[in-house]
Design a protein around this nucleic acid. Structure first.
Lengths: 249, 249
DNA sequence: ACCTGAACACCGTTCAAGT
DNA sequence: ACCTGAACACCGTTCAAGT
């Protein structure tokens, strides 16, 4: 009609330069645990921790939210799988030099892994993340610390304490606004501390600038130093028996 | 009708033993910031952190959820106010004895405050909680640590590091199932570590029992010991200049 | 002035139904 | 076998409307 030329009675064949269409309209990618976890990481990288949602992960794949439950028991399991992937990404530093520096390098490597995927550090908090990927890193740390002559009880808990510390700092990094309004807030905070009554808050006033100074990365390094120095003392000074540490069982 | 005796034409007067009815049906308590925060704490104590919801807090008061927004900007502000209340509850220990023990006592007091309100510790994580209630505690710690001769840079960050540590441990306490299935899981975990290939995981296998041993409270005490020992080294051994700590600005 | 109720744009999870 | 769509019981937040 209207003079538009019609080729026979059907539509013309696809031109050769057009890519092959997905068959039957809607794409139906094969789902799998890996696909789901990969999509979760993409969502995390692109939109941060708050966006990690069953529905958004499903959207990312192009599938309905309910279909994820065929491959993942629930959101908690998905989070655990994501954390495992992150731990596998930790680029373990070469052993060598003193154990102090090696332990610090481990912590830094973990921080880097967290920073590659914003929002993931917060997932470790308030959660006992026992994953296969964590085991390899844990083994390396244990080896390092034990061969330095550290008591076994101490070695056993370096892992947990370190994980706690790095996770907590990294989540602070994710959450702290680095520029613009964040800096403004910091200035307000400092001014507030300086305006406190001198008789009740002498030390807070005196250290106001220092309390607000230092980037989180600097605080991270400093905290690492405190931890490693503290650990080192156990080489010469034994555990305080009052700490109630189980020596036998 | 139906022979039921009717007293005159209206309903009988209230018997004297029945409490005075609230006037005109629905109670309309006066709202205020304090009422909202108090209700939030009640919800927290009764049902834990996941239950801290604008809607549930409103229910607790007997008011609609939207009415809370007259007294609190949003949920984040409510959380900050709740945290401030908790910090005010910290029963600061008497000064005396060495600074190490005082710092530890502060941490323990904070842990106690968190444990009184389950779910509140998790609220501190991934959040810069700058509240008035925190200032008083901070001032005490600064005074203690400075008078012990600690460098100002160190003193300034004991506060943050300590807060991070206590919050992280306390949130683990809230989340860890202490009995029943939790213990079962721990046994599974230990068995799993022991079943790892001996060539790749010698240390994990050797320390399997120790890695799972120790209550969280014990780990808390041990971690405190590490931190305090680490801090003590700054009295004799200065900061590592490589840490990049701002000495001037 | 203060609170309500409905509405909006979300959640996690389940389950009957489709293919 | 695998995925969809609707449904359920929730979220935080806004806003016109009631009193």
């Amino acid at each position: 009609m209207l003079g538009v030329p019609q080729i026979h009675g059907g539509s013309p064949p696809e031109p050769p330069w057009r890519s092959a269409p997905r068959r039957h309209g809607v794409p139906k990618p094969q789902l799998s645990r890996e696909v789901v976890v990969a999509a979760a990481l993409q969502v995390l990288d692109a939109e941060g921790g708050d966006a990690l949602t069953m529905r958004r992960v499903a959207d990312q794949i192009g599938v309905s939210a309910s279909s994820l439950y065929g491959y993942v028991a629930n959101k908690e399991e998905l989070v655990q799988l994501v954390l495992d992937r992150i731990f596998e990404e930790v680029d373990v530093p070469p052993t060598g030099g003193n154990w102090q520096e090696t332990v610090k390098e481990f912590a830094r490597a973990m921080l880097r892994a967290y920073r590659r995927h914003r929002g993931v550090a917060a997932l470790t908090l308030g959660r006992v993340a026992v994953t296969p990927g964590m085991l390899a890193t844990g083994e390396r740390i244990l080896a390092e610390v034990r061969s330095a002559g550290m008591p076994d009880q101490v070695a056993a808990f370096v892992r947990d304490l370190g994980g706690l510390y790095v996770g907590a700092i990294a989540s602070e990094l994710d959450v702290t606004p680095l520029a613009g309004p964040g800096q403004e807030f910091l200035a307000q905070f400092t001014a507030w501390m300086k305006s406190l009554p001198a008789d009740r808050f002498p030390n807070t006033r005196a250290l106001a600038d220092m309390l607000a100074a230092g980037s989180i990365e600097e605080r991270f390094e400093w905290g690492l130093d405190v931890l490693v120095r503290g650990l080192a003392t156990y080489l010469t000074e034994p555990l305080d028996p009052r700490a109630g540490w189980p020596s036998g069982s």
